[in-house]
């Protein structure tokens, strides 16, 4: 049982109190996630300036170079004239040995690099085609950003419109739209995406379409829920009494009331979009190569992991994880801050 404290806060907050209120909210701002997210956004926006190399071109002679801090690995091997299959792991031919040490003789033990040392030229190393991993991760942020923005704008608008209509008109309209949501939930969209790519070829637009199909129901449901509450507010009835048109009521009285929820949903959905885009790219149904996308980079490095070439997959994988986790933490904070029910508890 809560004490009845109504009537205690009668005076409107002064300017000072408002500033204090904003400060109190910002104090709980999740600093690390926000910092990491800004890094991702900056990377996406200024990729051409920030990236040290061209992300799509590489020199095959410089392939599979490990990150800068890696010292490389060498093994002693016996120099032989001709190599038999069985000796492969322990011996090296004379011609190869001469590349390392011109004085090499048959029968010598010589240290051969099985993997080159990292160099500061490629901070995070290079991939199997000699492309700079760092530059590709930076450009990957750009693709993720682009896909998220387009998907949110298109899928979000569809969802919001559907939700507004379903919530406002109710009845058959509501049934129809909500069954569409159920249908979406029952369709394996990843499978559809793969089929589309096989039949139409890989393109950015297919994956954006699929992602839109994926996220709109979430928006539709949330908005519908809000509208169902808001449409019973007295100010909506009063607007009708004053002769306001349905469009006016929806856009002036109802939609603004859903914005807080929308911001939260959008933040959390971006994480899902990035994850999905990566999944699709990983499966080869995403952004067409050679454009660097985090998902396809993870996929590229997948079969090299066994050979100890871990950096091609790991860095884009980390980028995905950090971005999605930061988005979720930030989204949680936004929800707690914008939810008036939680605001009371401060």
């Amino acid at each position: 049982m809560a004490a009845d404290l109504s009537g205690i806060v009668i005076a409107p907050p002064t300017f000072g109190e408002k500033v204090a209120g904003i400060y109190r909210k910002l104090k709980r701002l999740p600093v690390i996630p926000v910092f990491l997210l800004s890094l991702v956004v900056i990377a996406g926006l200024f990729a051409p300036v920030l990236a040290p190399h061209d992300p799509e071109k590489g020199d095959l002679r410089e392939r599979n170079i490990p990150p800068a801090w890696s010292s490389g690995e060498s093994e002693p091997k016996t120099v032989v004239e001709r190599m038999s299959i069985n000796d492969r792991a322990t011996s090296v031919t004379l011609s190869d040995a001469k590349k390392v040490n011109p004085d090499a003789q048959i029968g010598d033990q010589i240290d051969i690099y099985t993997r080159p040392a990292g160099s500061t030229k490629f901070l995070l190393g290079t991939d199997h085609l000699g492309r700079d991993v760092l530059s590709r991760v930076i450009y990957g942020a750009r693709i993720s950003l682009l896909v998220s923005i387009v998907t949110l704008a298109v899928g979000g608008s569809i969802g919001v419109t559907m939700g507004l209509m379903a919530g406002w008109y109710g009845g058959a309209m509501d049934e129809f739209l909500m069954r569409l949501v159920d249908i979406k939930l029952a369709i394996p969209l990843i499978l559809i995406a793969l089929v589309l790519v096989i039949t139409l070829g890989q393109s950015l637009w297919i994956i954006v379409t699929v992602l839109c199909l994926f996220i709109w129901p979430r928006f539709a449901r949330q908005v519908r829920g809000e509208v169902l509450q808001l449409k019973h507010m007295d100010y909506v009835s009063l607007a009708k009494v004053s002769g306001a048109s349905t469009a006016r009521i929806l856009f002036i009285h109802i939609f603004p009331g859903t914005i807080n929820t929308l911001i939260v949903v959008a933040t959390l959905q971006v994480g899902i979009v990035i994850l999905l885009e990566s999944t699709l790219s990983f499966l080869g149904a995403g952004v067409p190569p050679p454009t660097p996308a985090w998902g396809s980079m993870v996929s590229d490095g997948r079969d090299k992991l066994a050979g100890g070439v871990w950096w091609i997959s790991t860095f884009p994988g980390l980028a995905i994880m950090i971005t999605v986790m930061s988005l979720n933490l930030f989204g949680d904070w936004l929800r707690d801050t914008l939810d008036p029910r939680l605001r009371q508890l401060e």
Binding site: Y235, L238, G243, A244, S245
Partner: peptide, 26 residues
């Protein structure tokens, strides 16, 4: 009309001048 609950009858996102002017705007 004027309704019972003064907490629900004014749109919380509009300024007073816009709330009062709305019937005239329409």
């Amino acid at each position: 009309a004027v309704f019972q609950d003064p907490w629900s009858s004014l749109n919380p996102r509009m300024r007073v001048k816009d709330i009062i002017a709305e019937p005239m705007v329409i």
